[in-house]
Design a protein around this nucleic acid. Structure first.
Lengths: 162, 162
DNA sequence: TCATTTCGTTCGATTGACTAACTAACAACC
DNA sequence: GGTTGTTAGTTAGTCAATCGAACGAAATGA
């Protein structure tokens, strides 16, 4: 029918697959999706960060982050340590149990996607990156700064997509 | 430069934008995302359907649908009418106010995306569709029932395959 | 110094989701 | 008919995630 519809349908499939995976991954890791996201961000930041940074990156309020951290701390997946440099800040530290939890998240989405992506010829990879970035910029409001860590997998890079 | 990371980052930006927009969208229509999604499905079904059908399509329990319908009915966006054919069933009928709500839902994400997409030259549209469908199939488990309505609520649809 | 801002938390509320238990209606069957 | 089982929807109770508002403690700056 229409190319616009085709592209919307494909986009929707992408969104839905990702969401479904993220739920399954979180549940099989024994935490909720939001909690797993927190753990993954802390890991991506090198094992420690602050509630403020988490709230910004996740796009939720500090109050929400506090609630999530309460649950994670109660289960000993993270620790809170007051910062020496700025005593208003709390350092959120991932524990060994927390690391084990993120490690045990199978992350099937990333594995499958990455595996298939890397099988593609060079020109096709380049084309896909170009198109995805174009779509992202078409959707991106511009006032969005945080690049959230979803359950697609860890990225070595830590950019704030502009 | 790592193309795999670049593509994952772009994907995350896409997911992120969609998620943020879906919130604003529903709020500016004066209903919550889940409630808007109920209204949209009822409209898509021709203005009337049953709670059971809604629950199936949304991938949530009937109890959840009942709670959503309670709120929508209290605001006179839908009506409940007991079926004559099978008196166990309720027909969920959208009201004029409900129709007005779905019509006024700006759906900024889709509108902006569509507007920009349709400005692109033909070959570029074709390339984008091809890439998006490829990504979708790389992510997709295989079960699809995608419509060209891009709302985040659809992410919870139809988890029968998991 | 003192006002302002920032950081994190607490509190109260709402939304959306679940399960379990219930009522009402239909469908078979003997 | 009456009994049994299934299906549709609701009710009740619970929980996670989220928000805004109000707060105390700490840093900043005029």
């Amino acid at each position: 029918m229409d190319r616009t519809d085709d592209s919307l349908i494909a986009l929707r499939r992408i969104l839905r697959s990702t969401e479904l995976y993220s739920r399954d991954l979180a549940l099989s890791a024994g935490v909720t999706p939001a909690q797993l996201r927190v753990l993954q961000i802390v890991v991506a930041k090198g094992g420690s960060t602050t509630p403020k940074a988490l709230a910004t990156q996740m796009g939720v309020s500090q109050a929400t982050v506090t609630a999530l951290l309460d649950k994670l701390q109660k289960r000993k997946l993270i620790d809170r340590v007051r910062s020496e440099a700025d005593r208003r800040q709390m350092n959120i530290i991932i524990t060994d149990d927390g690391l084990a939890t993120t490690d045990s998240a199978p992350d099937a989405l990333q594995q499958r996607y990455v595996k298939e992506f890397e099988k593609l010829p060079d020109w096709e990879q380049a084309m896909m990156v170009a198109v995805l970035e174009r779509v992202a910029s078409m959707l991106d409001a511009g006032d969005i700064d945080a690049s959230p860590v979803l359950t697609i997998g860890d990225l070595h890079t830590d950019r704030t997509s502009h």
